[in-house]
Amino acid sequence: MRREFETACEIVQAADDVGGLQRATESLRDGLGISHVVYHWVNSRGERFGAGTYSQSWVDHYLERDYLRMDPVIIGCLQRFDPVDWKELDWSSRAARTMLQEAVEFGVGPQGYSIPIRGPAGQFALFTTADGCDDTAWSRFIAENQRDLILTAHEFNRKALAFERDFDMPTPTLSPRELAAMTHIAKGLNRAQAAAEMDISEHTLRVYIEAARHKLGALNTTHAVARALSRGLIVV
């Protein structure tokens, strides 16, 4: 996980309003050196929210043209959970091509990568990065950052869900197996040793650690161990 993502996720996790998410998108955009980072979501009551780096003039233009109704990124991402490169979307209609052309004039795209998230109870979110670079550079950017982008997208969504529940988020607790796995790793055992110690396969151990990482909102194993220690969940 690159430092830029860690910083953005820390801002997200500390956020107590949409402004915090906004600062996280700006931080990530600057850190990655790309044009835009946008996170928007529809909560379970159907209300829309957004944070992101698109210019106010593009947002105004977009609303004025009512592009929400035909935006291929929105239409194409509503009913999926696999991430999508904008090139894969359906831009065949004249209206869609016009929208993309205007977006580029406003400094959005043409490259884009959107990660859809299906949350609970009909909640839905889209985390997007966009830039004006060429195809080769964009493919390289996605290949290098895909995993971190996906994990970061889910950190934004975790916070959005917390907003919806008035921050009523239970403190994560780890199950005994997760605690055991994290404790062995914290003590410096490698995965094979930890798995042997717990009498499970290394593959199973990796899934326990991954489940714990996700619960703790950490970005990698090292980070997850540090969090589990600092919160007193595990003792070495």
Binding site: I150, L151, A153, S175, P176, R177, V207, A211, H214, K215
Partner: peptide, 12 residues
């Protein structure tokens, strides 16, 4: 069957 571990992650 999973030792009480909820298997939940964007990567799974």
């Amino acid at each position: 069957l999973t030792g009480g571990v909820r298997i939940e992650s964007p990567l799974i």
